[in-house]
Design a binder for these strands. Structure first.
Lengths: 236, 236
DNA sequence: CAGTGGTCTAGACCACGAA
DNA sequence: TCGTGGTCTAGACCACTGC
């Protein structure tokens, strides 16, 4: 693990274990440099990482402060593939409805950069949060990048398998959100009524090297859909 | 303007004017260093900024590539207070329903870090996108940080006034999303039916120095609610 | 004006990808 | 193996905050 990542982790853990509240000032750069025995830029890089993650904010001429402050019961919309997942706060399980290899249609191939006739794993799952239906998920995984999937893997966390089992690193994602009314079929899966509100999320996940490996369409149960999104300035 | 910001801008403009598509490789670091006559870290910083913004992605040992690729017609959920606003793609106008100074309730004071009895501007607006109702917005602006607002300012872009008029810099925001059913009142404003789907967003905006200045509750018209969210890995 | 964070540099060395 | 991006350092200097 790189120095700046380790330092970021250490500082984050410190904030957590010491229960530091929003607005609490952290030690000054000089002190952190000495404590971790690294140069200024390394500390800065660690702090930038934490700022990007929404853990702290830095104010020039003043100090480094804890941002913290996520409301309980809200899921991070941006799957926090960071250090410890905030999903640990919840009990999430999956029921696999379908798992097969298909030759996906045009719009899926476009998303995954696949040629005509290429194969992909198709996965249909219902996901539960604390025992309640959270969403129905239709996913396609590029067979070229993810050669093998079975029911066991798919029942658990597919992303965990990809990062830990296959040692692939997830890079970035594009997500498209829409609100609408549930169809008869969706309502059935989610134990709601046809015409009830829904949140639809279409997401394309890419590996570290920019290759798209997963195209997912998720329909969320509106009763369980509470999300938060933290964002920072794009000026720095 | 700082060197790395200027370079980031230049590169972004280059990608745009040359219509570079997703996956196109940019010149290597060495070349960029020479072109802009700066050190490696400055180029790196500029590229990190663009990566964070979702414009490019970098692959170690391979190169720097254009990410681009936002679907048309989708609004950025994360108000892109970056360079040119993607809202320019749309025609957004506002109708002010109410503008007054109030002593906000507990939950608003908590969000804005205000003591009991402190004052805030209360603004209620309907916002239109390309002539259609986009959302109803209920906002509170801390009077301490934003001393003055009038109908003209509020009819236009309040954030533009804050950054350009008051020369304040916006730092970060926390947003909480929920899907639900429209109340009678909301449906009236949005020209929809009571019970129709809605997306509710509660957002707290902070200045550069960490002080919260705006608490907004927005109810979106589900027919116009198409959003995208780009995200990157929190590992670096 | 002292304290604190931010920018920028030059250069050494490391890690990953593709051929 | 070589090209390419990433990390890390030491240090000079800059810019903002708050007393």
């Amino acid at each position: 693990m790189l120095k700046y990542q380790q330092i970021a982790l250490d500082i984050e853990r410190m904030i957590e274990t010491e229960q530091l509240k929003r607005g609490v000032k952290l030690p000054v750069l000089e002190a952190l440099m000495k404590e971790f025995e690294v140069s200024k830029s390394t500390i800065t890089k660690a702090l930038d990482l934490l700022e990007k993650k929404g853990v702290i904010y830095q104010v020039r001429g003043s100090g480094i402060f804890v941002r913290g402050h996520k409301r309980k019961g809200f899921l991070s919309l941006i799957s926090n593939q960071g250090f410890k997942d905030s999903l640990e706060e919840f009990d999430i399980t999956s029921e696999v409805l379908e798992l097969k290899i298909v030759q996906p249609e045009r719009y899926v191939r476009d998303a995954l950069d696949l040629p005509e006739g290429a194969e992909a794993h198709y996965v249909k799952r219902i996901r539960y949060i604390n025992g309640k239906t959270l969403c129905v998920e239709n996913s396609y995984y590029s067979k070229e990048l993810i050669p093998y999937l079975n029911k066991e893997i798919v029942t658990g966390s597919i992303f965990h398998y990809i990062t830990e089992g296959l040692k692939l690193q997830i890079g970035f994602s594009d997500m498209y959100l829409q609100v609408g009314k549930l169809t008869e079929e969706e309502a059935g899966y989610l134990q709601l009524k046809s015409g009830d509100p829904k949140l639809s999320a279409e997401t394309i996940f890419h590996l570290n090297n920019g290759k798209p490996f997963d195209y997912s369409m998720i329909t969320y149960n509106y009763e369980q859909s509470q999300f938060y999104v933290q964002s920072g300035s794009y000026l720095r």
